[in-house]
Structure formats: structure tokens, C-alpha cells
């Protein structure tokens, strides 16, 4: 019984989440469970609040949570500042990765890993580079990117691959991918998907946020949710994504109107 309770808690649990920015409510009672080992996709039209969800989960200061809770393996995520959430095992791949001039990719990832170590403990540089190069090879990222400034002057595809590289190095328990497919051509998409798939494991949960079904051809979700107007309005298997693709978001909206 005890063990079962434990395993029940091994999930990212979003309960009736309300959040607003500049006084405007964007999330209006969103609930979703992402157990470890599963990939959940959220699809939705523009303006449905998908990106807000990822930023609220990551702890962006601009958003105010006005109700509900988020538990990560049973721990209240909303009480932690953004950096603590990260160190506790939450990762967000940004839709628009930010440039940090003068800070090399290697130094950045190294600093992030170092921040996870107890005080006084130093990251082993040799092990670090070994791991970094291995992951870069997997993601087909040229070695010269270790010395290049984080995201500065990268193409869209390079930025997104770099997000996945950071994710792979930080080994989070829960990954939120915010429209990682936007701005990617099909080859880049395949590489990114390969990187994500390589990280799928029983010990890790994924929330893949996307506007298009295309990404889900390569990252096959266990569950698909449709988000409209700050709520999950429909959940299903991966077939739901195809249905959406075929019928368009208006179909869900119309259906909702009928139900209402």
C-alpha cells in the first residue's frame, strides 16, 4: 500500500490551475497528470494558453497563479523559485531560446550542472566534456558549438537542438517542450525528435506542447490533450492528434459550443 502511494506521487500533477498576466486570466482551471514514463502532448489553437502553461510551470515572475496547485512528485512546485524548480528536476525547452553573449555553451551547461552539486563539490571537467561531446554527437551538433556563445547567431534549428542538448545534459525528471517544432525544417525536426526519444524512460515524464500534429509523428505521445481557452477540453490517445489535424481546431470549438 505504502509503495503504491509512493508510485502514485511520481508524477507532475496540475490541479485546477488558474493564472493571469497583467490582470488577464489565461489559465482557467487546468488539470493534468503526467506520470513518469509517459509522454503527454498538449495541442491547441493560438491564444489558448499553451505557452502560459509552460511559463507558469517553470516559474516565470510575470505570471501570477491565482488558484490551484502543481505538485512534482508530491512536492509543491509553486512555492519554489524558478531556479529551484530546475534543480528539483523540471526542464523547459524554450520556444524562443535566449541569447547570452560572451557565455560559451560549454560554460553555461557546466555552470548549470555545477549549480546542482552540493557546496564545495567541483564538477569533474574531463567527465563533463566526455558526456557533452557524446550528447552533441547524438544530436549532430558540431563541436565548435561548445565555444560559441549560448544561442547567439544560431539558426532556428541550431537553437532547438541546443535546448535538447541542455535537456540531455541536465537529465531532468520532467520535461516541458514548448513548441519545440516551431521554425524547424523536417530534418532538424527529426534530429530533435531523436534526441527526445532517446531520453524517454520510465523515470521521466514529458509534456510536449505543439500547435501542429507533425511533431507527434516523430515523438509519439501516450496521451493527447486539447487545450482551448485556458482549459483542457478533450483528452485521448494519439488518434486525437490526427483527428484534430484533419478537422481543425474549430471542430473542438464547435463541439464545445454544442455541449455548452
Amino acid at each position: 500500500m505504502e509503495a503504491q502511494t509512493q508510485s502514485q506521487q511520481m508524477k507532475l500533477e496540475i490541479k485546477d490551475l488558474h493564472a493571469r498576466i497583467d490582470g488577464q486570466e489565461i489559465l482557467k482551471g487546468l488539470s493534468l497528470d503526467i506520470p513518469k514514463g509517459e509522454v503527454h502532448a498538449i495541442m491547441g489553437p493560438n491564444g489558448s494558453g499553451k505557452s502560459t502553461l509552460s511559463k507558469v510551470l517553470a516559474g516565470h515572475d510575470d505570471y501570477e497563479v491565482t488558484g490551484g496547485e502543481v505538485l512534482m512528485d508530491g512536492v509543491n512546485l509553486l512555492e519554489m523559485p524558478a531556479d529551484e524548480r530546475s534543480r528539483a528536476g523540471l526542464f523547459m525547452a524554450f520556444q524562443y531560446p535566449v541569447e547570452i553573449p560572451g557565455v560559451s555553451n560549454a560554460n553555461f551547461i557546466r555552470a548549470a550542472l555545477q549549480a546542482r552539486l552540493p557546496n564545495g563539490e567541483e564538477l569533474d571537467a574531463v567527465d563533463f566534456y566526455k558526456a557533452l561531446y557524446a550528447k552533441m554527437d547524438e544530436l549532430e551538433i558540431d563541436r565548435k558549438f561548445t565555444a560559441r556563445s549560448v544561442n547567439e547567431g544560431y539558426s532556428g534549428g541550431e537553437k532547438k537542438r541546443n535546448e535538447i542538448l541542455q535537456m540531455a545534459m541536465l537529465e531532468p525528471f520532467y520535461c516541458v517542450l514548448d513548441e519545440t517544432d516551431s521554425g524547424l525544417d523536417i530534418d532538424a525536426l527529426k534530429i530533435v525528435a531523436k534526441g527526445v526519444n532517446a531520453m524517454r524512460s520510465p523515470y521521466r515524464g514529458f509534456l510536449v506542447i505543439t500547435h501542429y500534429q507533425r511533431l507527434l509523428d516523430y515523438i509519439e505521445p501516450d496521451h493527447v490533450h486539447v487545450m482551448v481557452n485556458g482549459r483542457i477540453v478533450r483528452s485521448g490517445g494519439k488518434g486525437l492528434a490526427l483527428e484534430l489535424e484533419e478537422k481543425g481546431y474549430d471542430w473542438v470549438r464547435d463541439e464545445l459550443a454544442v455541449t455548452a
Partner: peptide
């Protein structure tokens, strides 16, 4: 602020 948030999301104070 975007830079700071990005870095915080990676675990840096």
C-alpha cells in the same frame, strides 16, 4: 529579464 529567466530555468540562482 528574459536572460535571467532562461538561466534560472537551467538552475542558476
Amino acid at each position: 529579464q528574459d536572460q535571467i529567466f532562461y538561466m534560472k530555468q537551467r538552475g542558476l540562482s
